[in-house]
């Protein structure tokens, strides 16, 4: 249990601009986005495809650099860090969950969850313990020796969440985590994500284009054409375990 007493600013983005250059033609994906997100927040980013939500997530997750504006994660800017330090931040402070799961094929659940540990500098003798605990927290202990290809979609996504969790990151970025799942599996995944936020105190940034999924968060940011259209608090949050998860 690590629920922070005071809410520090974890993410501070000012006027973020992102321009893609591709063979001469320029595409502007983000046109001045400013957000502040505190530790322990659960924020959903919504918007139609092409609105720039994935681009924003990549920049917030240190996977891509902005073309203009300033971005600080936990007081650190990508511009001030070496490539190795950026890799370290992604490894230790951030967890990623992707729509397509991205598990290693022909590899067991346990080995998949261990993947971030390979790059962590943590002693190998502790890996098993940490990975088992993460698998347990998503309720897949009975599947731990199975290969990833033997799992259902929902189970795969839960393995991916366990992998994101294994190093206890400050923040988890989830990019359409329920996008490839049926409603029942999606519900289970949202249940886990909500619990991680409320019980474990993880900051969560969730990308989705489904309003219902987004309403599990405390706050919804709407993007349209690379700009923030609305940024509102969710009045009536859905509980993942209230049985109303419908696609």
């Amino acid at each position: 249990m690590k629920v922070p007493k005071t809410k520090n600013t974890l993410i501070k983005a000012e006027d973020i601009v992102k321009v893609y250059k591709d063979e001469g033609s320029e595409t502007t994906a983000l046109r001045g986005v400013s957000i502040e997100i505190n530790q322990g927040d659960f924020v959903a980013i919504m918007g139609p495809s092409g609105s720039g939500k994935s681009t924003l997530l990549h920049i917030l997750g240190f996977l891509d650099r902005q073309s203009g504006g300033k971005y600080y994660f936990d007081g650190k800017s990508m511009d001030e860090l070496s490539d190795d330090e950026i890799a370290k931040v992604r490894n230790k402070d951030m967890g990623f969950v992707f729509q397509a799961f991205n598990l290693l094929p022909r590899t067991s659940v346990l080995e998949n969850v261990k993947l971030p540990l390979l790059y962590s500098g943590i002693e190998e003798s502790k890996w098993d313990e940490l990975a088992r605990r993460a698998v347990e927290s998503v309720g897949l202990t009975h599947r731990i020796e199975h290969e990833s290809s033997q799992l259902s979609g929902g189970e795969k996504q839960r393995v991916a969440i366990a992998r994101a969790l294994v190093l206890e990151p400050q923040i988890i970025f989830a990019d359409e985590p329920t996008g490839n799942l049926d409603s029942k599996s999606g519900q289970m995944v949202m249940e886990i994500i909500q619990r991680l936020n409320e019980e474990e105190g993880h900051t969560i940034i969730l990308i989705t284009h489904e309003t219902y999924t987004a309403e599990h968060a405390q706050r919804i940011i709407h993007l349209l054409d690379g700009k923030i259209e609305t940024d509102r608090k969710v009045e009536h949050r859905h509980r993942a375990n209230d049985g109303h998860f419908i696609k």
Partner: peptide
């Protein structure tokens, strides 16, 4: 490769 990098692998790794 993309996944490993997202999870913290450096270029050297």
């Amino acid at each position: 490769i993309g996944l490993r990098k997202a999870l913290g692998a450096t270029e050297r790794d």
